[in-house]
Each structure stands twice: as structure tokens, then as C-alpha cells.
Simulated assay, not measured.
Amino acid sequence: MERLQKIISKAGAASRREAERLILAGRVTVNGLTVTELGTQADADRDVVAVDGVNIGAPKQKLYFLLNKPGKCISAVRDDRGRRTVVDLLPEVEEYIYPVGRLDYDTEGLLLLTNDGELMNGLLHPRYEIEKTYIARAQGLVTADDIRQLCRGVMLEDGMTAPARAKLLEVADNGAWSRVQLTIHEGRNRQVRRMLQAVGHRVQSLKRTAFAGLTLAGVPRGRYRSLTAGEVDRLKKIAGAAAEVPAGAGHKES
């Protein structure tokens, strides 16, 4: 017997933290009965566990995808308000997959999706300090002092951020906006937007261009590709997961 959130995570249906939210929201059933207690245990081999009515078992094949997420899209499997989700962008994939972390509704760029719960938890765990690079278009003239502050870390309402790598890429001729590249390894909610706001610049648009050494090269906005076996192996190593990679690491490209 295992805790329900661990079963959900192992199946690749959600991270453990997200699994807890799903349970509390009444979106998980065991043998047809809705479960809302976080301490509930189940037998993954005998009980039928479902999320949003979809049975989740140990995946028959581990799948790994890199998506170039467009704006106006939810980083989730479903949305109660009927908005488009990132899973909707992979219609050929019939297996239950889940995004690794989140990008805001309006944020574009690199997002991984998988049914490998172990890898997902490793990539999201703060101990591994997985780097993420963003390019932001920020309102106003970002100065060299602003860049230095971002590099040192800035104070947010939930505490001081870790030092980041920041670079000024472009400034409008009239100083109305600036384009900034920012690399962080923390995973706080809306962190890049809040960091730039903390130094006096509202983010007008934001795109994640790199994650854990992967980039968007060759993947147009709204499209996706399977990760190679080599890429999966490297992710497993940096995320502290087992390095064993199944043959056929993903699914057909889109």
C-alpha cells in the first residue's frame, strides 16, 4: 500500500505536490469512489485509481516531449473554464501525459511533458537547481544597475531570490521597453515577472527559451517533438533519477 499522491506521481499523472491539490479538489477516485483525504493509501496493482475520470496505471511506455508553448494556453491537463491546455496541442498522444512544472497562461516557450513521474519530480526538486532561461520584454529602460540587482538577487514578498544570470539584449530607441535575458534555478510562482517588477519594470511579454540544457531549436511555436534517448538519459542524470532509458524514448513529432 502507498499514499495516493505517490501512486499518482509514479504514474506520471502529476507531481506529488500537484497530486495533493488534485486529491483535495475531489478530482481523484479509487475504485470509483472520490477521495479527498491526503493520507489515503491504495494498492497500485489492485485498485483502480483515476484522475478526472481517466484511469492511471503504470505507463506501458515512458514518453517525453518538448513543446514550444504558445500564449493563451494553460499548463495543465484540463481546465474547468474550457480554455486550451498544453495537452490539447499533442492530439496524437493518447497516453496520459502531464507538464513538468508550469508556464503562465500568457508565457510562451519551452515546456516538457511526460508520463515519467520519477523524472518529473527530480526536475522539479529544488535540490538539483535545474536552470531555466527566459527572455522578457520589460517596460521602460532597464539599466546596468537593474541588471546587477537581478544578478545579486532581489527581495520578493516570499524572500530573497537566489543570484541569477541577467543580460540586457536590446533597448527601444525611445527607451519605452527593454529586452532582458534571465537565467534562474528556482521555481517560484511568476518569479521572472516579479523579479523584474521588483527593479521597477513590468513584464510585457515572456518566453522560456531553455530548460535543463534543452532549447527550442527547430520547434516552431505551438509544435512539439519527442526527446531523444540521449536527451532523456542526460535529464535523468542531472535530476538524480535512474539513467535507464527505454527504447523509443518518445512519440511521433508534430
Rank of each mutant, 00 (worst) to 15 (best):
L216P: 06
R208W: 04
E244W: 09
L206V: 11
A212K: 03
T183V: 09
R221G: 08
A243Q: 13
G240C: 06
A243E: 12
S178R: 04
G187V: 10
Q204L: 15
W177H: 15
L196V: 08
V192M: 09
A176E: 15
V199S: 11
L206M: 11
L182I: 15
R202K: 14
V199K: 13
E186K: 05
R188T: 08
A176G: 12
L206N: 13
N189C: 01
A212C: 08
S205R: 15
G240P: 01
A243K: 13
L196I: 03
A243P: 00
S205H: 10
R202L: 05
K207S: 13
V232K: 10
G218H: 07
W177V: 03
I184G: 00
F211N: 11
I238S: 07
S178Y: 01
L214M: 12
Q197C: 03
A198H: 03
R193F: 03
A198F: 00
L196F: 06
D233M: 12
Q181I: 03
M195K: 06
L206G: 10
I238M: 15
R190V: 00
A241H: 00
A242L: 10
R223P: 01
V203D: 09
K207F: 07
R221S: 14
T215F: 09
T215Q: 09
A239G: 12
I184D: 01
P220W: 12
T209F: 13
S226I: 02
K237F: 09
A229G: 12
A229V: 07
G175L: 05
S226R: 07
G187W: 10
V232T: 04
A217K: 14
L182W: 09
A210R: 14
A239E: 06
V192I: 14
E186C: 08
R193M: 04
